[in-house]
């Protein structure tokens, strides 16, 4: 699991520092700190960023919203934002609302509120709401990552790093080359959001990254995967594997 990369756009140094402190403490990775609209844009395109925290007012102008509007226009560049503001001025918010699903946080805020706002931003952005607050799910699946809530913070796993997923009731064991961990998500949800080009179910319990398959032992119904991992495939899913072999 990797830390979430955050870009903080905040013109008040103390608040920026406070934010950074909380984020770092909660296992987030603050990759950049910008204090102007221009700098923010530069950093945004330079760095690999998962979430942006934007103060609405930069030097007294609602440049935070201007920034959000700017990146909204660029296709595929948009990331989840959290707007920081000290007042819920209707006009500003009506304008912010036009950008994209967003999360906002009213100053002053405490640690939990900030973390919650980050979660909501991710939920809304990937259109999978009420996930992190629920009891039966702690993961959101995007095109590239799994966003997993561990303790209070979010982590991410790149989908291409996953070797296979072992489903057990309401839990899933995510196995990468290096580590292995449990997430809370139903098989249905996974099948709904996972990219079928790269992942396929081989067994009632296994979902395998196609790119991680190294060898197929048909006799034993066994798949040999990267990093010496093994997964079985059942008769029910045999045909798919066959087809896959022929294609290969």
């Amino acid at each position: 699991m990797d830390k979430i990369n955050i870009l903080v756009i905040e013109d008040t140094p103390e608040e920026a520092m406070a934010l950074q402190e909380i984020l770092v403490e909660n296992n987030y990775n603050v990759v950049g700190m910008a204090n102007s609209h221009q700098e923010a844009l530069t950093l945004f395109y330079q760095l690999k960023i998962d979430i942006v925290i934007i103060d609405v007012f930069l030097d007294g102008n609602p440049d935070g919203i201007t920034f959000a509007e700017t990146i909204s226009i660029v296709p595929n560049a948009l990331k989840p934002f959290v707007f920081l503001t000290s007042s819920k001025d209707r006009q500003i918010f009506e304008r912010a609302k036009l950008t994209k699903p967003f999360s906002f946080l009213l100053k002053p805020f405490n640690e939990l509120e900030l973390l919650y706002a980050l979660e909501i931003a991710v939920e809304k952005f990937y259109e999978q709401t009420n996930v992190f607050s629920s009891e039966d799910q702690d993961t959101i699946i995007s095109n590239d990552y799994l966003f997993i809530k561990k303790k209070n913070a979010l982590n991410k796993v790149h989908l291409r790093d996953i070797v296979y997923i072992e489903v057990e009731n309401r839990y899933c064991n995510i196995v990468t080359e290096k580590e292995r961990f449990v997430i809370q998500i139903s098989l249905g949800k996974i099948s709904e959001f996972l990219d079928t080009k790269n992942f396929m179910q081989t067994h009632r319990k296994y979902i395998v990254n196609i790119n991680a398959i190294e060898q197929i032992v048909l006799n034993d119904n066994l798949l040999l995967l990267k990093g010496n991992h093994k997964a079985t495939f059942s008769g029910k899913y045999k045909d798919i594997v066959k087809g896959f072999n022929i294609l290969k």
């Binding site: 819920k88 209707r90 918010f93 609302k97 405490n110 939990l112």
Partner: peptide, 21 residues
């Protein structure tokens, strides 16, 4: 009437946690 109002689904537990904090 200047308050921005955005009714959405909120988890009471999380909200309470944040307040409790």
């Amino acid at each position: 009437e200047q308050l921005y109002f955005n009714i959405e689904s909120i988890d009471l537990f999380s909200a309470m946690q944040q307040i409790e904090y």
